[in-house]
Design a protein around this nucleic acid. Structure first.
Length: 501
RNA sequence: GGCGCAUUGGUCUAGCGGCCUAGGACGCCUCCCUUUCAAGGAGGAAAUCACGGGUUCGAAUCCCGUAUGCGCUACCA
């Protein structure tokens, strides 16, 4: 968190979602950019909830947002629940504020009341479409109303909206930190609604007013907002406010090349948590999706990112979200992690019910931490997702193994050869007093030599008998952890299977 | 349709006029290490830098046009 004074901070950023559903990974990329920028300069980062559309507001999602932030380790300086010097941080609680500014704009001639009914608007739009007019949009009928007509409408109690009065000619230049000056011709702009008939502001009005009042210096938002930026600029100008630094960051795309969206299957950040992704891996991956440090560095800690992030190195074009690449980052972070920290992360995944991806329910919970620690240590470099740990290690915990008998017969061996190998292996394991990986390996290698077979196939038979798998961590370390009794038990039942052939 | 933004291997990217016979990473393939799988190491395939014109002694880098993609075009954000 920042300790700088919010009143004078040179960098204040925010994320301002509408509470209409969960935040997906694309939203979090923008959050990470904004947060990193604030942290880079010792400024503040805030969350503001844009709940100005009563119909679309979904109760409870703010808690989801906060949970996502908390889990990701993205600390907020201001926002719902925690508050701050520029609250409230729910726009629905700031309603009167927007109406006052809307009327100020009406008074200064930058906006006007529009009494057109929904029906008339629909007719108008339908007509425009039918005639394939080059520019659609409101026909500005109410902009030409005389003062007496307006008074009459008001007196009659007609409901109205407030629309911005776009200048009829000239253009507005929007300075963007990523794209330079973007020119918009007024002719192509529409008299958008600023204040709805229910008294709530639209996004355009509310976000402009709040961004100014809350003193945000850098506005980062998705590039889908670029087309409406001139409207915002016009409002700033009309109110004689200073335009902040804006950066319209490129979208995160799905593999279909289209902008990621809930509708097209984008997942919540919490979904990735449940998949076994680590927050730092996600942050590292996401930071590099549309931003780069240099020509080669891939692994950057949150600390390093907070030192290095800058708008100058943000990409201008959209980037496709690649879960495979994010998985690779996750694996790197898992391998780097201290074993006890990894254990803290992995235990909950192992202990949850089998139906939720945990170990079989027959395995008693809580697990023995010391034992699991040895197991996980053995598999650390094989784990890409925290959820991998269950299929990777479950054979350490179960009582009975199920596998095809043929697997017990190593490459180049026949059933009889496999059986005698297993018999002799069992014999020397039983007589082996020192149950240590190195000793076990030495003993088994000697056995292979004595039998005149290659160690590989012999070990494979044992591997299957002991683990039920063909792909496992190193065999003798596995046996050591499993313990003498359990290992011998498993080798014996493998032998029984071979004998029954 | 109108307006806007973008365009380097399948994907993420480096590059901001000569260092580029275009570098790194994910993924893929081969080999090495090795009891299997990973991890690690060494290689490889993969980009006519969207296309076409300029500008320049020289362009992936600057300008113009075209194409393609994406976004916006609501009293939704």
């Amino acid at each position: 968190m920042s300790t700088a004074d919010p009143q004078t901070a040179t960098v204040r950023t925010r994320f301002a979602p509408s509470p209409t559903g969960f935040l997906h990974i694309g939203g979090f990329r923008t959050i990470i950019f904004s947060w990193l920028l604030a942290r880079r300069h010792g400024g503040q980062f805030a969350l503001r909830v844009e709940d100005t559309d009563q119909q679309r507001t979904v109760p409870g999602v703010v808690e989801d947002f906060l949970e996502g932030f908390r889990w990701m380790g993205i600390d907020l300086d201001e926002g719902p629940v925690i508050g701050g010097p520029f609250g409230p941080y729910y726009q629905s609680q700031r309603r009167d504020l927007y109406a006052a500014y809307a009327h100020q704009l009406v008074a200064s001639g930058h906006a006007y009341r529009c009494f057109c009914s929904k029906e008339r608007l629909e007719e108008m739009y339908a007509d425009q479409q039918a005639r394939h007019l080059p520019t659609t949009g409101y026909d500005r009928r109410c902009r030409r109303l005389s003062p007496s007509e307006i008074d009459a409408n008001l007196a009659a109690g007609l409901s109205y909206v407030v629309r911005i009065a776009i200048p009829t000619d000239g253009d507005t230049i929007v300075p963007d930190a990523l794209r330079g000056d973007v020119v918009f011709h007024h002719r192509a702009l529409e008299d958008l609604v600023l204040l709805k008939s229910d008294g709530y502001p639209t996004y355009h009005l509310a976000s402009v007013i709040d961004d100014h009042l809350m003193r945000f210096t850098h506005i980062l938002r998705g590039d889908e907002w670029l087309s409406t930026a001139p409207i915002h600029k016009l409002i700033y100008d009309a109110l004689q406010w200073e335009w902040p630094i804006t950066a319209h960051v490129p979208s995160v795309m799905g593999s279909d090349g289209r902008k990621l969206s809930k509708r097209r299957g984008a997942q919540s950040i919490l979904y990735y948590r449940d998949q076994g992704f680590l927050p730092h891996a996600i942050i590292n991956y996401l930071a590099l999706l549309g931003w780069s440090y240099d020509d080669k560095t891939e692994i950057l800690s949150v600390d390093q990112l907070q030192q290095a992030f800058s708008l100058e190195r943000v990409q201008r074009s959209g980037a496709v979200f690649d879960e495979e690449r994010m998985k690779w980052f996750n694996g790197v972070y898992i391998r780097q992690m201290a074993i006890d920290e990894l254990l803290d992360h992995v235990l909950p995944f192992m202990e949850r019910p089998a139906a939720d991806g945990g170990l079989p329910d027959e395995v008693a919970r809580p697990l023995n931490r010391a034992f699991v620690r040895r197991v996980v240590q053995l598999d650390q470099e094989r784990i890409k997702l925290l959820t991998d740990v269950v299929p990777l290690t479950d054979f350490f915990f179960v009582n009975t193994l199920t596998y095809p008998v043929e697997w017990l017969i190593g490459k180049g061996l026949d059933a009889a050869g496999a059986r005698s190998g297993m018999e002799r292996a069992l014999g020397s394991l039983e007589s082996n007093l020192t149950w240590e990986a190195a000793v076990l390996e030495e003993t088994m290698r000697q056995l292979a030599t004595d039998m005149g077979v290659r160690p590989g196939p012999l070990f494979m038979g044992l591997r299957v008998a002991v683990t039920g798998r063909k792909e496992t961590p190193p065999l003798f370390a596995t046996m050591e952890i499993l313990g003498r009794e359990e290992t011998l038990k498993r080798v014996r039942s493998g032998l029984e299977l071979l004998a029954a052939l």
